[in-house]
Amino acid sequence: MADEVLTAPLVLEYPFTRTTGPVIGGFLTGLREGVIHGVRRSDGTVMCPPLEYDPITSAPLSELVAVGTVGTVTTWTWNGEPRAQQPFTQPFAWAMITLDGADTPMLHAVFVDSADDMATGMRVEVVWRDEREGHITDIAGFIPAVASTTGEPAAMPSDVEQVQSVRTPIRMEYTYTPGRALSQYLRAMKDKRILGDTCPETGEVSVPPRGVSSVAGKPTLPELVDLPDTGYIESFNITRVPIKMRPDLTPPYVSAWIVLDGASVGFMGLGMNVEPEDVRVGMRVRAVWKPDDELEMSAQNILGWEPTGEPDEVIADYALVGRIEQGDDQ
């Protein structure tokens, strides 16, 4: 079925490293040492966690003030099932908590058995993580405060190393779907067929198909067309140093725009079975396919492009995409 949906998991993740500056860094340094800081605003009140600017007036702020480790819940909700990215493993309450000595609430988790144990106005105290590094999760969370806990700020040790940066990894999972035209193209790839789509106004063919002609601003013709696995190199790049993210590619290697016979817009492919120095603009090439028993619904079925040995195409105009002296009118 042409409309059957192709899907694939797509995970985007990166361990972002954020430099902090003195205010955020000062707060995180405090967390590492077991002290929570706010910042004094121009009206004398204390905001916690601290920002290097007043979030209402944008005035610069810098005076860090130690606040207590006990505070009051101002609002909350129940998080019955921790979500994948959350740094908590048990059900918990999200809460806004105003620490003693601060005038604004901060967001964190409160650990109680159920929502029945939560209430606005309840007193909670910090649970510190054993190993602390200068991160918001140095506060493991909060628990209902024991009456005897004063939560007085601990003394900040002097001469400690300031936190300069913080790692905040992000991981997001998507289900990728390539779209209608590209799905058809990928399906055909399994049969070693290359499909392109046709502009309804100019009749020119593009590979891979995108389902839309940018020249016409219209859908391409519904019937995709079969193209041969031969064409020419429109132009090329030679990567001569290793690219860290592509350990699978050994330099020097050629990445070339391949224009297939019958098409007039190219795509990037890998040069194969040719020395980079011998690659030429206009060189005739054909696809090098994976072995038949390894074919999948993937553009990766084509390992690369190798010279056919035929005479080069003559480029009609070096500035223009897909324009050669012969073969451009099929």
Binding site: T75, R83, Q85, P87, W94, A95, M106, L107, T137
Partner: peptide, 17 residues
């Protein structure tokens, strides 16, 4: 991105509070 996002409060939780 420093204080809140690393805890991953989802949009429903924020609105619920």
């Amino acid at each position: 991105p420093y204080y809140v996002a690393p805890l991953w409060p989802d949009a429903f939780a924020i609105e619920a509070m």
